[in-house]
Design a protein around this nucleic acid. Structure first.
Lengths: 142, 142
DNA sequence: TCCGAAATATGATATAAATCATATTATGTA
DNA sequence: TACATAATATGATTTATATCATATTTCGGA
């Protein structure tokens, strides 16, 4: 459903949302140890997210990654799409080039509703909302 | 959502359902040209499906691949699961090992319904049903 | 019974995703 | 200003997926 990279990125960003802000940053080492994802791997992912302004970072001592208020309010789809693109989420389940409502593949109508519900969740749920569930102990990261 | 292999396999099996039965077989060459998938690739996929008795085949002249009545009534999930396994379809969206109703990850409850609807379609729709839509011109393969 | 047509078995290659490693740059602090 | 700490840039390696190639086995028909 999601690539490993997306999963790792989401876990990292959620973790950052719980534990950082403009005044509290966190190093890759800390993050990776807490979410149990290889350090070099999560570093690459976070660097990319930072370059795209989906999270924030500062270099040097006392530096690290963090999320600001703007970052927190982004939908989880922004992370997923940044990491693995959006194509696979909208393309035909059978891979047909011009499958649509008018000329549907045989599975199209059968899965269109569940798929759009899924995408709606990705696009309408913010990182902050997920973090909120964690804070309220309604959900867990491990 | 689905791997290329699954897409190819489904297309091939659907095509076979439309054009073959115990008395009408079809060679890999014919199949691959009709569904525009590389011949050697679809050959490997079909051989595997045949070994698992999800489709049928006979060797030698006048031989080929085909689907019998039992094959046709299989759910599309059987093809997908044979080709790429079922794990990814049931595992946690964030990849958490022990995410479930009691100890959900922060996305679990938000996607559980759309995901199970999706799986329900895979598991309750037969190949024959898809082929039926094609015959009735309610759907198209290209 | 021999030949050719077909799947089967097996493995090689190519491409993409995942993972690891390191030299470079920026910055706070002594 | 020098040093240590952190991200950044870059690329190498590994693993999985996709793709290609071919020798072997099976079997119908001449």
């Amino acid at each position: 459903m999601l690539s490993n990279s997306s999963k790792y990125a989401l876990k990292a960003v959620i973790y950052l949302t719980l534990h950082t802000d403009d005044t509290r940053k966190m190093t890759v080492k800390e993050i990776s140890s807490h979410i149990q994802v290889p350090q070099a791997y999560v570093a690459k992912l976070l660097q990319d997210l930072s370059k795209r302004d989906l999270i924030s970072s500062t270099r040097g001592p006392k530096g690290g990654f963090y999320v600001n208020e703007t970052n927190k309010s982004l939908p989880i789809s922004s992370i997923v799409y940044a990491v693995e693109g959006r194509k696979q989420f909208s393309s035909c389940l059978l891979g047909l080039e011009d499958c649509d409502e008018e000329k549907p593949c045989p599975v199209h109508h059968r899965i269109v509703s569940s798929r759009s519900r899924f995408l709606e969740v990705l696009e309408k749920t913010s990182i902050a909302q997920l973090a909120g569930d964690l804070k309220a102990k309604k959900a867990f990261l491990q």
